[in-house]
C-alpha cells in the first residue's frame, strides 16, 4: 500500500503531530501510515481524509493486480 498522506499534509502545512492530534491517534501511527506500513481502519482513513480535505482513494493507493478477464465478464462488459 502506498499513501499520499505526507503530500497532502505538507500542502496544508500540518506536522505529523498536528494531524495525529486532529484524528486522535499517536504520532507514531501517522509515521507508519505515511510509510505505508500500517493499514488503518475505515474510520481512521475517513478521519484522515476529512482532516486533509481529500478523498480516501486519493490518499491510499492499493496496488491490485488486474484480474484475468473471464468470457462471462467480457460478455457483461460488451452488454
Amino acid at each position: 500500500m502506498q499513501t499520499r498522506i505526507k503530500e497532502y499534509r505538507s500542502r496544508l502545512s500540518l506536522t505529523q503531530e498536528d494531524l495525529a492530534r486532529k484524528v486522535g491517534v499517536r504520532r507514531e501511527t501517522i509515521v507508519f501510515l505515511e510509510q505505508g506500513k500500517y493499514n488503518p481502519s475505515l474510520r481512521l482513513a475517513h478521519d484522515i481524509a476529512r482532516a486533509l480535505h481529500a478523498r480516501i482513494d486519493d490518499l491510499f493507493i492499493f496496488e491490485v493486480e488486474p484480474e484475468p478477464e473471464s468470457p462471462e465478464h467480457r460478455e457483461i462488459l460488451v452488454d
Binding site: 495525529a20 491517534v25 499517536r26 507514531e28 488503518p40 481512521l44
Partner: peptide, 10 residues
C-alpha cells in the same frame, strides 16, 4: 503530553 496513551494501532 496531550497525545493518547493508546490508539487503534497500539
Amino acid at each position: 503530553g496531550d497525545s493518547p496513551e493508546s490508539d487503534e494501532r497500539s
